[in-house]
Design a protein around this nucleic acid. Structure first.
Lengths: 328, 328
DNA sequence: TTGAAAGCGCTAACAA
DNA sequence: TTGTTAGCGCTTTCAA
């Protein structure tokens, strides 16, 4: 099989007694070629385990056949599942276009990993896994002129975005809660640097018009969440809306500490569902998204951009409201 | 800056009025070259933002300057943090060798993603993120003759392994618990297909000699854990050892349901620590490892193999026993 | 110490 | 429809 070095297109051409451009044409499907020759080549390749060298192909076409997947290197535990599913979506669709995925991490204003792969010409395009306000990565990518797509939303003009429709989703869940008769509702949110945090808050406010609300933001550790929950409970609120699954987890923990029952003592809902929440009793009312789909769409869109097709500037994906016992 | 196409080595050579082989030598440091010329070239490159094209370099050296990072595509939530840190370690050290990281996923006997990147010559070597018994990925990699390193242990001969010293660590924690006077101890473990599961069980048994134990394996969902915990509690055991953080989380949840206090009702320890466990009160006695270090070592080792240096067959990294309130 | 030129494996323009 | 050939941008002999 693998006797030393890999087969090249020249080997194939020689064995088949045809020219290598014919082989190339047979493989790529570009250019005129008789069905016969084409099939002959394809058959041969099939059984000879010849694989075109992507370095050579890349050099010749000035492409890398890699897309860059850029994610925070030090994020919350909770985001990891999201990124994993999203990445799986990216990989699945990249493969279809014969692309692979180069991964790099960024963090705390450090986008050197991103710079590295773009300046070194290691990728043909980039998918950014999350968006911030004043996003250094987005600014850099815009300037670089490399095709890129962001998962999430941004106000930066001209950026191609694929996102869940957080605002609508949150508005809908909030208004359902309102219809259920909640009178005083706390929103506990996380990192305000993230665009998504703001979108969810906005949806919340839109859905809760007329209801008394109290907002706690940047609750990024247990202590802060606990403090907010304590305050919420003693203020006599009847519902807590958690911005994401991690916060919800901490809220549930806090309520246990405070010996407040859900939903009899207080209702709880989460604006993001995940495995983190699957074992609570009662189960948590939450918004469900499909990160896999998100990754696939982002990658499909990026492939379009890379191939010069024009892509929609902003795609919003669906959601699902799952009403469970925690808001009964 | 980026006026159309990237600078090439020819541009540099022309601007400096020297040959491109000289430029190449200046950059690589290989071959004889005067300190003067070398510096001149380096200075020029510094300010001209020239970046060698890795496709061309790769084609010429038959290298890709990519390492493959292979992880399960559909794993437990809990492993994700481990993989993330590990990956960060891999990336950090890959960069130093001017390599990037190509990511691919495998799952349930499906190693097509791995096959893809190796057969397509997209990587110079592979790091496998976890090991199974009867591991199809390991078998494939061995046959492929591509340099590779596994994170984890395997009985497969000749495979280069980097792992935490699970057996010693678990033995040590178990024997500490024994010294603390536990009389009847349950071990609740996960997927027995994973090598690591077995290592931990082995360490547990070695450390618990003479103590009455009961073993529950393959507890991979809440229901199974709950059942094991219920049985354990009603059998009058005084300690539960959890094989990993996720199981520990479910054990704690179960104990809460059963209204058994920790540590007064029963002691709890975990053979793997992570953020999942950080918010419990009392805090959980657990084994701490450093996945970042693991990733770094794996990648360093892989780079050695790629560069033809010989590498140790098996490296075991340290651990830390952190005694907390849950076993007081 | 430096330069010229061949070659890495592929694509694509041009010829036949 | 197929073949010839000139690159893609780099490394590496081999000469100078």
């Amino acid at each position: 099989m693998d006797n030393g070095k890999a087969k090249t297109i020249d080997d194939v051409a020689r064995d088949l007694k045809i020219s290598k451009s014919t082989v190339s044409r047979a493989i790529s499907g570009k250019g005129r070629i008789s069905a016969d020759t084409r099939q002959k080549v394809l058959d041969y390749i099939e059984k000879s385990n010849y694989r075109p060298n992507p370095m050579a192909k890349g050099l010749s076409e000035s492409r890398t056949f890699n897309v860059g997947w850029v994610v925070p290197g030090n994020d919350y535990m909770t985001s990891l599942y999201f990124y994993q599913r999203c990445l799986q979506g990216v990989i699945n669709t990249a493969i279809k276009a014969d692309y692979d995925v180069l991964i790099t991490t960024i963090g705390e204003g450090d986008i050197s990993g991103l710079k590295r792969i773009t300046e070194n010409h290691k990728v043909d395009g980039v998918i950014l896994g999350r968006t911030l306000y004043k996003d250094a990565a987005i600014a850099y990518l815009k300037a670089s002129r490399l095709p890129f797509v962001v998962v999430g939303s941004t106000e930066e003009p001209g950026v191609i975005q694929v996102d869940n429709d957080h605002i609508s989703a949150c508005r809908e869940l909030a208004s359902i809660l309102k219809m259920k008769g909640v009178k005083k509702v706390a929103f506990i949110g996380g990192d305000t640097e993230l665009v998504v945090t703001d979108s969810r808050l906005r949806g919340f406010k839109e859905g809760m018009t007329g209801v008394r609300t109290q907002i706690y933001m940047d609750c990024d550790d247990y202590e802060k969440v606990k403090r907010s929950v304590t305050e919420t409970v003693s203020s006599g609120a009847d519902c807590i809306v958690c911005e994401d699954d991690r916060i919800c987890q901490m809220v549930m923990e806090s309520l246990k500490d405070l010996e407040v029952e859900v939903p009899s003592g207080i209702k709880v809902a989460s604006f993001y569902d995940s495995k983190l929440l699957e074992n609570y009793k009662p189960q948590i009312t939450a918004l469900k998204y499909d990160p896999l789909e998100l990754g696939m769409r982002a990658c499909e869109t990026l492939m379009d951009v890379i191939n010069g097709k024009k892509a929609e500037k902003r795609q919003l994906l669906g959601y699902e409201v799952t009403l469970k016992g925690s808001t009964q």
